[in-house]
Nucleic acid binder design. Structure first.
Length: 451
RNA sequence: GAGAGCGUAGCUCAGUAGGUUAGAGCGACAGUUUGUGGCACUGUAGGCCGUGGGUUCGAGACCCAUCGUUCUCCCCA
């Protein structure tokens, strides 16, 4: 057997890491619950049909496909070879693969809603905290297996949902101690811009190009737009659009001057104004260069960036007014947000934002000083455990030195020593390992001690 | 899918211009010390130098391939 290893882009999590991650999960979950969202879980795998075509061409390539079983079945060899030929030219793949790992939580949710819309009470609000998988090349802040925490509401056009979701973002990150900027834009504004610049079919080209503004600069964006078939006049409108800056109010005024007489743009602007005025969040900023790749968004879109650290977005979302129609259930609008736990973890680790309390494991180590002593220890431990004190006994008879060092390494704050003397006198020696102080307590005093 | 860097002890790394028996720190284990840890000292274990091929009298070092890993672009959380 070769050296054991992990699949690329996946990780093991040790006790410390799991505790820190749980802190993030619990914080986000509690905020979701505060806003009336209910939990949902879906399978790790979906039918390939459910996922394909929902994330754009790039997204489709990153879906982890699961090989069908039974491909070595001799009686089906010819059929399987024929099917594989189709795979090679990018066609129908059912004979080779018909299942895939979940790529995000939104499409499985849409599938769930489409399957169960007859039973659900609308508006239906759900949250979901599960891993997703992407066949991406791993790099900083990018993994092949990572968790998303999504909250979505379907069956409502109300902008109050956007207001609440923006507030969920703000509240959760505040509770985590992470300073963030919540960036918003509207697909309606981007659509209006596209109408003015070569037609609605150019929207994807335009959004892809402008999304790169802060990375490659305005000149390169203009070059890319030219390559994508826009003329000089159209590009100059986009340049004006991208040069809009200032605070939210100033940006909206400038945008109205540029595209305000377009009906779609006006609707998008109204929605953004509503959201900003309603929430009054200080870190909610308009960013007209925000586009987001996923094709299904139709209204306001969100993206969350952590301040003071170099990291891709740690959350994103938006409104999709017609997501379930791809599953033949039309007219169910929705809006949702997602938290990227693994990136939030990396940010918190880099900025040292995890509270120390997160790490308390065993509170008390009982020394093992002999057969009769350890029996007494066991009885005492059971009584402490009944009072929710986390304690354990050293696994074997050993020198003090060894037992102390073990406690140090496991960062256990208290040691309790029960030797022959204490056994006889029915008391214990309690030592605070951090301060070095120790005192003798009766068994009764120990049971009421505040650890 | 495109590009770059790095693979030497459990971990972090050093290894000079290609030259005898590959080193350090940390960690592990044992002892000094069988009723009091963190410190110190002493000792021990631990390496197909990622893998395969090539150049050379001689390769951890140079060349090629391969695998792994990290990072960048694309795209994304």
């Amino acid at each position: 057997m070769a050296k054991p290893s992990l699949p690329q882009g996946t990780r093991d999590f040790n006790a410390e890491t799991v505790r820190k991650r749980n802190f993030i999960f619990n914080t986000i979950r509690s905020v979701f619950e505060l806003y009336g969202y209910q939990p949902l879980e879906t399978p790790a795998m979906e039918n390939l049909d459910t996922l394909m075509g929902k994330y754009g061409d790039e997204g489709d390539k990153l879906i982890f496909k699961i090989l069908n079983n039974g491909l070595d079945n001799v009686s089906k060899h010819q059929q399987i070879k024929d099917d594989f030929e189709k795979v090679l030219v990018g066609k129908n793949t059912k004979g080779i693969t018909e299942r895939a790992l979940r790529y995000d939580l939104t499409i499985p949710f849409a599938r769930y809603v489409a399957m169960n819309h007859g039973q659900l009470t609308f508006p239906f609000k759900r949250y979901q905290i599960q891993p997703v998988w992407r066949a991406d090349r791993p790099q900083r802040g990018r993994y092949r297996e990572f968790y998303q925490c999504d909250a979505d509401v379907v069956g409502s056009y109300s902008l109050i949902n956007e207001v609440e979701l923006a507030t969920i973002y703000a509240t959760a990150f505040e509770k985590l101690g992470v300073e963030v900027e919540i960036k918003i834009n509207s697909r309606k504004i981007l659509a209006a811009l596209s109408e003015l610049c070569g037609g609605a079919d150019k929207m994807i080209d335009i959004t892809i190009a402008i999304d790169k503004l802060d990375k490659i600069g305005i000149e390169k964006v203009k070059e890319e737009l030219l390559q994508r078939g826009l003329n000089e006049n159209q590009i100059s409108i986009i340049e004006k659009y991208l040069s809009i800056n200032g605070n939210n109010e100033e940006k909206l005024i400038a945008l109205k001057n540029l595209v305000g007489d377009n009906a779609t743009a006006k609707k998008g602007i109204d929605e953004i104004e509503f959201l900003i005025n309603y929430t009054k969040l200080k870190n909610l900023n308009i960013d007209f260069t925000l586009a987001r790749g996923l094709n299904y968004y139709t209204g306001i879109i969100f993206e969350v960036k952590a301040n003071n650290v170099q990291m891709g977005s740690i959350g994103g979302g938006g409104r999709y007014d017609d997501l379930t129609s791809t599953f033949d259930v039309p007219n169910i609008p929705g809006v949702g947000i997602s938290f990227g736990v693994d990136r939030i973890y990396d940010v918190m680790e880099e900025l040292k934002l995890f509270p120390v309390e997160v790490q308390t494991a065993t509170q008390v180590l009982f020394f093992n000083l002999g057969e009769a002593e350890s029996r007494a220890v066991f009885d005492l431990m059971q009584q402490l455990r009944a009072k929710n004190i986390r304690c354990e006994m050293f696994h074997e008879l050993a020198k003090f030195d060894k037992q102390f060092k073990w406690a140090d390494k496991k960062q256990i704050p208290y040691a309790i020593i029960i030797g022959s003397k204490e056994l006889e006198e029915k008391n214990v020696v309690l030592k605070n390992l951090k301060s070095g102080e120790q005192k003798t307590l009766t068994n009764e005093q120990l049971l009421s001690f505040e650890f």
